[in-house]
Simulated assay, not measured.
Amino acid sequence: MTVFDEGLPSRPSRMPHRRGVPALSNVWTWVVRLVLPVVLYLAGQVLYWIWIDNVYAHNWTSIVGGVWIAFTMAMIALWLLCVWISTEEP
């Protein structure tokens, strides 16, 4: 024990955990769980407008853009599945 440790307890005490306030990671998890389906729906709507409900002629930009949106939607769907299935406690 040094001079600087004088008056301090021998074991460090833990900070009390407030049980009424959810952890920030728990709030973030639920925000992601609720926002990802909305993002997936909006991307699907844009893909529908580009590929199905296209009033203009199909050109290479609508095909490339649609493929990119479809790929992004697949990644968002995978992320959404992982977030909803995970049982990790914060």
Rank of each mutant, 00 (worst) to 15 (best):
P22K: 00
Y41T: 12
I50T: 08
N54H: 11
V31E: 06
M15W: 11
P90N: 04
P90M: 03
S86I: 02
Y41V: 14
W49E: 14
V46F: 10
M75Q: 09
G7N: 02
L78H: 06
V67M: 11
V46I: 13
P16L: 05
I85R: 14
L40T: 08
T61W: 14
M15A: 15
W51K: 11
V55N: 10
N54L: 04
L8F: 11
R14D: 11
H17L: 15
W51L: 15
E6G: 02
A57R: 11
I76S: 01
N54G: 04
L36N: 01
H17P: 00
S13K: 10
G66K: 00
R14Q: 14
Q45P: 00
T29F: 13
W68T: 15
L80V: 01
A23H: 13
D53C: 05
P37Q: 00
V35H: 03
F4N: 14
I52V: 14
E89P: 01
V38L: 05
H17C: 10
L81F: 15
E89F: 08
G20W: 03
A77H: 03
W51E: 11
L34A: 07
V31I: 12
I76M: 09
L78R: 07
I69T: 07
Y48D: 09
P90D: 09
A43W: 02
P16R: 06
R33L: 06
P12V: 03
R18T: 09
F71P: 00
G20R: 03
V27F: 01
C82G: 11
M15K: 14
L80K: 02
T61H: 12
S86E: 05
W79I: 12
I50E: 06
E88L: 12
A57K: 10
R18N: 15
Y48L: 10
E6M: 08
A57I: 12
I63G: 01
V27P: 00
L40Y: 06
L47P: 00
P22R: 00
S25V: 09
L78G: 07
S25C: 05
N54C: 06
L24R: 04
V67E: 06
V64C: 04
L81V: 12
L34H: 09
